[in-house]
């Protein structure tokens, strides 16, 4: 038995619990930011409002909830060509665990190209540049160089823009238009106005990651929160495409049988049997 006074605790501002009278390991009441989750929020709050509450510890305004919901809808399914969804489908076709499908989607969708790390870095740009066009041009032309090396690969393109893109894709523009129609947020309106100038300097078009970063910046999230939210919001598509391909099986899924060329093939080894 541990001395009761010596019990280590988890310190949290987010959550509070009251124990069931017959079981100290079960909560009778759980409070999130002061709200009784099962006694009050349940039935009143939408999933998006609750997501906001978890991150912000205060309820969103109607416009804030609508903006986050619009972003959530736009990101929920990146489609089966997206790298992260492809990762999940690879788990599906091979009969891997369902959890591994989402781990695959998260691991891939975490990256610098179209992923959560890109959103994180783009958010840092927003924090640094705000809505000052010259600051954006400067940072695009001379991106910050970290002297110290990290486990994350260095960015190879302007965060928030697609290095493999041509013009700004219609859905990205539709999302940006819709978000600005909900609320004339300064950051999003500015992005809409200056998109083409920024694209010219980046040498590539605005991407969903860029709109996500701008939206989450406009909504007052921190870069670390934005990285997590982007990871979360893109999982539904990964899940359903993995399940669909699991049912279809590997034989109806691309293997790229003729897609690989080994340029230094030593050739078959002579059989000395």
């Amino acid at each position: 038995m541990t001395d009761k006074k010596a019990l280590e605790q988890i310190t949290t501002k987010i959550w509070r619990e009251e124990a069931e009278p017959d079981n100290p390991f079960a909560a009778a009441k759980s409070y999130c930011a002061g709200f009784d989750v099962y006694g009050d929020l349940l039935g009143k709050v939408s999933l998006i409002e609750y997501l906001w509450l978890l991150f912000k510890l205060d309820p969103p305004s109607k416009a804030q909830a609508h903006m986050l919901e619009a972003l959530a809808v736009a990101l929920a399914n990146p489609g089966p060509r997206d790298h992260s969804v492809r990762g999940a489908m690879n788990a599906g076709v091979g009969g891997s665990t369902r959890a591994s499908a989402l781990i695959a989607a998260i691991s891939i969708g975490a990256g610098n190209l179209g992923g959560a790390r890109e959103v994180f870095v783009a958010m840092q740009y927003w924090q640094q540049c705000g809505t000052d066009l010259q600051s954006w041009i400067d940072i695009i032309d001379s991106p910050p160089q970290e002297e110290r090396s990290d486990v994350w690969p260095e960015m190879e393109h302007t965060p928030g823009f697609d290095p493999n893109g041509a013009s700004c894709p219609t859905p990205v523009k539709q999302l940006l238009d819709h978000l600005t129609s909900i609320e004339q947020s300064e950051a999003l309106t500015w992005l809409q106005t200056n998109r083409q100038t920024l694209e010219q300097h980046a040498g590539s078009p605005l991407a969903f990651s860029g709109v996500a970063a701008a939206t989450l910046f406009a909504l007052g999230f921190e870069p670390e929160q934005a990285e997590m939210i982007f990871l979360l919001l893109r999982l539904p598509g990964a899940a359903v495409h993995a399940l669909e391909q699991e049912k279809m099986g590997w034989s109806r899924y691309p293997f790229f049988g003729n897609g690989l060329t080994l340029t230094n093939d030593p050739g078959p080894v002579p059989n000395d049997d």
């Binding site: 019990l7 605790q9 310190t11 949290t12 959550w15 619990e17 930011a33 510890l57």
Partner: peptide, 8 residues
């Protein structure tokens, strides 16, 4: 439950 120290 007592292992959660709520600051709020």
């Amino acid at each position: 439950v007592e292992r959660i120290l709520s600051t709020d």
